[in-house]
Design a binder for these strands. Sequence first.
DNA 1: TGCATTTTATTTGTCGACAAGAATTCGACA
DNA 2: TGTCGAATTCTTGTCGACAAATAAAATGCA
Lengths: 234, 234
Amino acid sequence: MTNIDAIVIPERKRGSGVKMVYDLLRDEILDLVLPPGSPIDEVQLAERFKMSRTPIREALVRLSGEGLIDTLPNRSTMVSNIDFLNMHTFFDALVLMYRVTTRLAAQYHRAEDLRAIRAHQAEFAAAVQAQDALAMIATNAAFHSAIAEAGRNPYFIGLFNRLLDEGRRILRLYYQSYEDRLPQRFVDEHEELIAVIAERDVEAADRLARAHAEQIVEQIRKLFVREERLDIAL
Amino acid sequence: MTNIDAIVIPERKRGSGVKMVYDLLRDEILDLVLPPGSPIDEVQLAERFKMSRTPIREALVRLSGEGLIDTLPNRSTMVSNIDFLNMHTFFDALVLMYRVTTRLAAQYHRAEDLRAIRAHQAEFAAAVQAQDALAMIATNAAFHSAIAEAGRNPYFIGLFNRLLDEGRRILRLYYQSYEDRLPQRFVDEHEELIAVIAERDVEAADRLARAHAEQIVEQIRKLFVREERLDIAL
DNA sequence: TGCATTTTATTTGTCGACAAGAATTCGACA
DNA sequence: TGTCGAATTCTTGTCGACAAATAAAATGCA
């Protein structure tokens, strides 16, 4: 006894409304389906999800709290912009969190953490093998997020995940250029990271994580200057 | 033509509802007027603020996003507990953010930042002079928050403010014991911090911030063991 | 009395409606 | 034709109401 509506909107249960809208909007923002600056219309969303504006608004409040959307009082709300002018603050925070979370993972990880980390690494390697840039971005973030989880510091986990989200948006902008040789190097560096975490070598974990993070930052920087050149060329 | 209601609820304007509820509840949670575990009743709040449940709920969603309240789906919502078992994760994050924000302040501060920092330091010194423990907690947090602002990294500022909030709750629990001699030492250390920031001595800023943070952590730790002794004594 | 089950009450999640601001359109006048 | 102001349309913030989910109370039974 399934009707067609049940396929489009899968039998929403009471209480799942906000979470559903939140998850989907979040994905669409991070995947740049909704690019920075896109207007967000409550009424439109309400029609799309076939629910009233109240749960939509609560989802938007959550997204706003995480800085993914900007809300002008009594006026429009839109997907938050990426602050290219102060990108260095993002890089600083990212490198530090790479280091700290990897350090803590080396200190506090348990056996099951390593299994989860290795599983994500396998997915990342597969994405590199398949030259699937979007999958590389997602699996790389998941890999490092798993390392952070193994470190068991909720404050660092929270900030790091937020940074990884922001990085996901930034990399999406340039994912075309992921066709070079660097990804294989990242795969190797990930393996080294796993090794020093497993050995509980905190200092080595710090050193490798730092080098790895600076690699990534450097790559993003190169994407920027290439983009600037294109701008000038036009 | 003012009526009595206008005094209790000061002429609420459209759009200010959520912010008002959010600000007030946040203060009451951080000041332990609402201690951890307190139940939060939407209807009661709606009556208290003389508004409907909708804006109340949106304020609660924000507070939930910041981890200040916990919400069980379809069930009660309450002020989040302080996780004493994993207090070390809080200390780790706090020390690191003290160091990082002070470093960045030494690097990036401007003249007006120093003025703001010195103003907060003056207020802190006054609170110590007056032996006003609650004012010490608040002005100390404001002092370090101002240093973080001078560092101009929004990611660090966000996490650090969150940690300072949590610290405010923890210290409130024990603020009686602030009657010892340590506060004067903190005043002196603050002066040293300001000096190295003004000199833009990054490494010294890091070193002093770390020592200062570890002082504070050590003091909180001592409060804990004293509390445990009292528990045993009973 | 103690336990299981039904009934009632309370609380939460969602809804449709309305009114206040802001943006837009329209029209008057120069 | 261009500009200013009034009127209209649109969007947002808030409201009161209702129904689902849970908790509490009441009832029945051993």
